[in-house]
Amino acid sequence: MKKDIILAGVGGQGILTIATIIGDAAARRGINLKQAEVHGMSQRGGDVQSNLRLSTDEIYSDLIAQGAADLIISMEPMEALRYVGYLHAEGCVVTSSHPFKNIPNYPDEEALMAELQALPHTAIMPIEDVAKENSLPKSANIILLGMAAKYIEILSAEALRESIAHVFASKGAAVVEQNQRAFDLGLNAVK
């Protein structure tokens, strides 16, 4: 079994934290993983993405081929669309619907959402609003991970939940609890 995931967002939105949690869960269960990250100049408010590959077999390439990704997990709707060329025909897109506008020529929002919703498998939610309503303003990315949990398959939701505890352990029990709550919010929002 394999799962090829593209994580997308804007520098500073926390996609690498999502990758760290999935990575922790994979390492603990002996699932092979390769995860290419973006460091350096583009982290300054530019588009960032990470290729995350999980497999029970040996993984060779650090990069996912076009048309081969099973899942796009994005903190931002336009950034989700940026990588549709990498998605295979039955691939899923899990994304925030909240646009991050730090450029003057951001596309028309309605057209953008229409294009996203035209894809066969999507889960779209205003995760930042949900985070604020639930007094979890820093955990929008973990809500998104919860939404994606159902599609990750190669790792169970429970495994991811456990890894949230491992990854946030150094920040104290309260932070772990907040993030697990955020995860459950996302998990329960996707049917």
């Binding site: 530019g46 450029i103 951001y106």
Partner: peptide, 20 residues
């Protein structure tokens, strides 16, 4: 030879990095 399942999206523009 492989054709991507989905063509490049229309409503996407570059997002260059910027000074904080």
């Amino acid at each position: 030879t492989s054709a991507p399942a989905f063509a490049a999206a229309e409503n996407v523009v570059p997002r260059p990095p910027a000074l904080c």
